[in-house]
Simulated scan of single mutants.
Amino acid sequence: MATQFQHRLVGTLVLVSLGVIFLPDVFDGEKAHYQENYEAIPLREDFDTELLTAPVEAPEDVEAFMPQEPVTVTINESTDSPQPQPESEPAAVAQVEASAPKAGYQDSAWIIRLGTFRNIENAKNLVSTLRGKGYPAQLMPRDVKQGELARVEVGPNVSKDKLEAMTADLESLTGLKGQLLRFNPLNP
């Protein structure tokens, strides 16, 4: 015969298992059921069959943006009076090539090259030291890999005199005598 303890144990197990099964549903609240709205993908889209038989038009001819010939620029000679000049006075005529670079912009910026390094970590440390002191330093080329040569440069700056003044400070800071060179943005 079963003892009173066994009856209590079985009753407790039944109550605990019923609580484990049903209590989460009671405390979870009202369930929200979501139904996804979907449409079936058609096997073939309907399209206008007239597009298949319509003739294709030829593209329009458009003039080139840049002139193919040299451009003629007329410059009137300046006078001290603000009066308009009569057309009988001679005007200076200049021929300008459309592709010719402007003369004042070829050598307009300067850099100081402090050195070329094979050890990239040394070059990066030097650049971070210089930037910490307020100098516009960079590593060239920017995507240099281990084993390749990396240049440490300060600049560019349009003032050659300002960079020349920096060379003594840079030499005392780094111990490297830098070269003052022209900056070429197309081939750094």
Rank of each mutant, 00 (worst) to 15 (best):
L15V: 14
L9C: 08
T174V: 12
A2E: 13
T12M: 01
I120Y: 01
Q146C: 03
L15C: 11
R131N: 09
A92M: 08
T74H: 01
R151H: 13
S128W: 04
G11N: 10
V127N: 01
I21W: 15
P185K: 03
R151Y: 14
L51E: 02
D61Q: 12
P67S: 07
P141A: 03
S81K: 01
Y135H: 07
V144R: 10
V16K: 01
T49H: 14
A165K: 12
I111Q: 00
L18E: 03
H33I: 07
M1V: 08
P188Q: 13
N187D: 14
R8K: 05
N122P: 03
N119P: 04
I112P: 00
K102A: 14
L51I: 08
L52A: 12
G104K: 09
Q106D: 07
R113A: 03
A92D: 04
N184S: 08
A109Y: 07
Q106G: 10
L51V: 03
A32H: 06
W110Y: 15
T49K: 15
D46M: 05
M1E: 06
M66N: 12
A165G: 11
V127F: 06
N122C: 05
D169C: 06
E97Y: 08
P67W: 06
Q95Y: 05
A94I: 08
V144P: 05
V10G: 00
P70R: 15
L163R: 08
N119Y: 07
A94W: 09
T49F: 15
E171D: 10
T49A: 14
L163A: 05
P55Y: 05
E171A: 12
S159N: 13
P24C: 06
Y38R: 13
E148G: 02
